[in-house]
Amino acid sequence: MRNHPGNRPYREQTVAPPGDLEWREEGGSWIFRGTCPVCAHETEKELFDLVPGTVTKGLPWGRKQPEVRRERTIDCECAITHRGAEERNGCGAGWKVRLPDEALS
């Protein structure tokens, strides 16, 4: 098991998103789930700031509504503490995701 990717030490890096990345709406927030492409552990991230009504809508006399960022960074948050991670979970990998249109409506 020495060469299993899960044995990798913690290292911050940007990688391509997992091939099995999926997302779902649950209770007003969005859950992103997949297998980390670096350590091969399952990881899940909940984005709370997409809950409808949490973005300031502005005043009726012309203040613009702030634009919601379509691209976000999801970090590996697997339940494993990798070597060198101190007390953090995850291997340090992160990847960019583009929010589904449904998340912005």
Rank of each mutant, 00 (worst) to 15 (best):
R2P: 00
N3W: 07
N3Q: 08
N3V: 06
N3S: 14
H4T: 04
G6E: 02
N7T: 03
P9T: 06
P9R: 12
P9F: 08
R11L: 15
R11Y: 07
R11F: 02
R11H: 13
R11T: 12
Q13M: 09
T14R: 13
A16R: 14
P17A: 09
P17H: 12
P17C: 01
P18S: 04
P18N: 05
P18T: 05
D20L: 09
L21D: 04
L21I: 14
L21R: 07
E22I: 13
E22Y: 01
R24C: 05
E26I: 11
E26P: 09
E26W: 07
S29Q: 04
S29R: 10
W30A: 02
I31F: 11
R33I: 03
C36K: 00
V38H: 03
C39D: 09
C39G: 05
C39T: 01
A40R: 08
H41N: 11
T43S: 14
K45Q: 08
E46A: 11
F48R: 14
F48L: 12
D49M: 10
L50A: 04
L50Q: 09
L50D: 06
V51D: 06
P52F: 03
P52E: 07
T54P: 00
K57L: 12
K57I: 07
L59I: 09
W61N: 09
W61Q: 14
W61R: 02
R63K: 08
K64F: 08
K64A: 15
Q65V: 11
E67Y: 00
V68D: 04
V68P: 00
V68S: 04
V68L: 14
R70F: 09
R72W: 11
I74P: 01
D75C: 09
C78F: 05
H82M: 08
R83F: 06
A85I: 10
E86N: 15
E86M: 15
E87I: 05
E87C: 02
E87F: 15
R88H: 15
N89H: 15
N89I: 07
G90D: 06
G92I: 03
A93S: 15
A93N: 02
G94A: 13
W95T: 04
W95H: 01
K96P: 00
V97H: 03
R98P: 00
L99F: 03
P100T: 09
D101T: 08
D101K: 09
A103E: 02
L104C: 11
